[in-house]
Simulated scan of single mutants.
Amino acid sequence: MRGLDFNAIADRVLSGEDITDEEAMAILDCPNEELLLLLHASYKIRSFYYGNKVKLNMIINTKSGLCPENCGYCAQSIVSKAPIEKYAMMKQEEIVAGAERAASVNAGTYCIVASGRGPVNRELEIVVDAVKEIKSKHRDMTVCACLGILKPEQAKRLKEAGVDRYNHNINTSAAHHNNITTSHTYEDRVNTVSLAKEAGISPCSGVIVGMRETKADVIAMARSLHAMDADSIPVNFLHAVDGTPLEGTKELTPRYCLKVLCLFRFMNPTKEIRISGGREVNLRSLQPLGLYPANSIFIGDYLTTAGQESDRDKQMLEDMGFEIDLEPLGKEALVK
């Protein structure tokens, strides 16, 4: 579908239409010489809803390794031989100190992440008490929790504590799921996002691209997240860690990563599209262009891999003419 008018498709998206699977595939197959046209059309959508603002997110790995799940991408899984640091759930004061670091670099969203299938009661209580303290000091900070598969009463406790957002990524398509993990189902992940939403917590769910999936799988991921109505969509690009089952997988190019980000913007026009793990090693010198379709990034380190220095991220935003979005969750100037 060479020569597709991406600008016209963007206008249709802004009028409330969904793109077709054929148009979605054309975005992923966009000829490299037309990539700037695609980015321009994506920015037309992104700027309509978010202007020139970029949300900053910071993550804290409150429990590392010790996970019984067999996710092929994860250095913390039971099947991983990666030499990572392993430790049990942090203390409350350590989690609160992480929020202070996030506030010091203008990260509006603080993500509390723990490895494992799901939280046990002791772990949940530590997070609940930490969130209460964080919210007492930083009322406008968006607190996101990512603790694995939830039970209904756990989702309720997190909401009562002040958790604004819950992340549980679908990671890949339903069709490709069993090629990545068999220790839980795709439906387990969807159900957890639904539980959080039912508890009144903003749902966050995203993907990891580059795990030997097809382009049709990528389209299915974007469409599934649209159906789930996820408010925030982290788009990770596989950073294959030595010692994991996906060790040595290098399928991505910076140009394809940009096309993926554009696809997610076209298919989820009103949502926060966050460039997440693997940004630095996959987008490389094209990182700034990712902000034309995306409106959110992580700063600092990820779970078991290092990120770009926050000063370099802020310089990138300044050079591109973007502003840091400090609006608290629920007060965004967002047309839905």
Rank of each mutant, 00 (worst) to 15 (best):
T214K: 14
V105H: 04
L286S: 03
A88N: 13
I233R: 13
E309H: 13
D325G: 01
I59W: 01
F322V: 00
A41G: 03
A306H: 14
L291Q: 01
T192H: 02
I170P: 01
I59A: 08
N178M: 14
L158H: 05
H184Y: 13
N7F: 11
M141V: 03
K336Y: 14
Y49S: 06
N268D: 12
H226D: 11
K156P: 01
G277H: 05
E160T: 10
M211E: 08
C74K: 08
P293V: 06
M89T: 12
T142S: 11
D18F: 13
I324S: 04
R212P: 00
P119Y: 07
S104D: 12
Q154H: 10
A175Q: 14
P269V: 04
K137C: 04
S115T: 13
L291K: 01
I201N: 02
A222K: 01
L225M: 14
L147F: 06
S224Y: 00
K86Q: 14
I170F: 05
S173W: 07
R274Q: 13
Q315N: 09
R189N: 14
V131C: 07
A26S: 15
E280S: 11
P293T: 09
S115H: 02
M90V: 01
E213T: 05
P119G: 09
T182N: 14
G65Y: 12
S285M: 05
R284H: 09
I45E: 08
S77E: 09
D325W: 01
E160P: 00
G16D: 04
G65T: 12
M316N: 11
G290K: 04
T181W: 02
A222L: 00
L329E: 12
K331I: 01
H138C: 01
P31A: 09
R122W: 00
S232V: 15
L258G: 04
I112Q: 01
A199G: 10
R255K: 09
C67P: 08
I324M: 07
F237P: 03
G321D: 06
R139T: 13
I219P: 07
M211P: 08
K63E: 10
L246G: 10
T181K: 13
L317C: 05
L225D: 04
K135P: 02
D242T: 15
A145K: 03
G162F: 12
E125S: 06
D129V: 02
L39P: 04
V218M: 06
K137W: 02
I273L: 12
E213R: 06
N106Q: 14
I208V: 15
D231P: 00
F322A: 05
R122L: 03
L317S: 03
A103T: 00
A107N: 08
G278T: 03
V235G: 10
L150G: 11
D319Q: 13
D242L: 12
I27L: 07
T182R: 15
A107E: 05
G148M: 05
I60H: 01
R12S: 14
V143G: 02
N106L: 13
A103R: 08
S183R: 10
V128H: 04
N70H: 12
R101T: 03
